[in-house]
Computed example of a mutant assay.
Amino acid sequence: MIEGKTVLAILPARGGSKGVTRKNLREVGGKPLIAWTIEEAKKSLHIDKLIISSEDDEIIQVAKAWGCEVPFKRPIELAQDETPGIEPVLHALKILPQYDYVILLQPTSPLRTVDDIDACLEKCLAFNANACVSVAAVTENPYWMYTISPDSIMHKLIETNNYFTRRQDLPKVYKLNGAVYVAESEWLRKNKSFLSNETMAYIMPWERSVDIDSESDLFNLKIFLSDYSY
């Protein structure tokens, strides 16, 4: 609870991932990938209820073993490749409508910390925002990117009168890192997205913004963890 408001945290974890087979259960640093998120979320000062949304019996059992609640099994029709990511969240809010705020924590962001989770929520309330999501600075700035026409002519991706010759002069640009999504529950039911022209940004460092979307991502994470102690 925070400022008298109740908080529901949701871990979406379907079994049919394609980029990394059974990625939510893959071992990373001696434990299933999903356990990294569960452990950090359980340390939160504000989360009242931490649940998993999954259609997969094995994932459900592993989540339970690591201390995550499973109040329902996700309908199979909400666990398809083409299912929009917001649908499992809206489904959970229908079953558990009593919470003032909802946090979406994707298991594919294992290096996000409890400090990131709580700070994103705290920022949302401090600014009386409807939503706040985590972002990270891009490593390749789009102001130095081009499209190429059929006749091989280069065109600026972002049209501007400025010509930036030094990296230090480039405008700062950020991207969603997928780690933390926070929203006021009723607003989210109406907006059906965490993103709008009202959404605030919580900036996370690049080293904690790992997003597992491929086998190479998983391999690189294991290498990273073998070099550094977490």
Rank of each mutant, 00 (worst) to 15 (best):
R22N: 15
M145L: 14
D115P: 00
L221Y: 07
I148A: 08
D100E: 07
L176A: 07
L105I: 04
L121Y: 09
F72K: 02
L45Q: 15
E77M: 08
P12C: 13
W206D: 13
Y230P: 00
I76L: 13
I47L: 04
Y230L: 11
P71T: 00
W206E: 12
F224A: 01
W144Y: 10
N161Q: 13
N161I: 09
K156I: 02
V173Q: 04
H155L: 07
S149V: 03
S209Q: 01
A119R: 13
M154H: 05
I103Q: 02
D56E: 03
V135F: 07
L176C: 12
S229T: 12
D217F: 00
M1W: 01
N130G: 12
P84K: 06
M1E: 06
L105K: 02
N141Q: 08
K18S: 13
W144R: 15
D118I: 09
I76V: 14
Y228V: 02
E184R: 13
E82I: 11
N141Y: 05
V210D: 06
G16T: 02
P150M: 08
T21D: 14
Y202A: 09
R189Q: 11
Y228T: 00
K172E: 15
S214M: 02
I158A: 08
E159T: 13
P12T: 11
G29W: 11
S185C: 12
F164C: 06
T113F: 06
E77C: 02
I148L: 08
S193H: 04
N177G: 07
P150C: 10
E186G: 01
I86W: 02
I47E: 05
T160C: 10
P88D: 02
L25S: 10
S226N: 14
D118Q: 08
S54G: 03
I95R: 07
T37G: 11
K73P: 01
L121A: 07
C124D: 00
A119S: 15
W36D: 09
A41R: 01
M204N: 11
I52A: 11
I103C: 03
K192I: 01
I52V: 14
K49L: 15
P171H: 10
A119W: 00
K73Y: 03
A65G: 12
K49C: 12
N24Q: 11
N141I: 08
K172N: 08
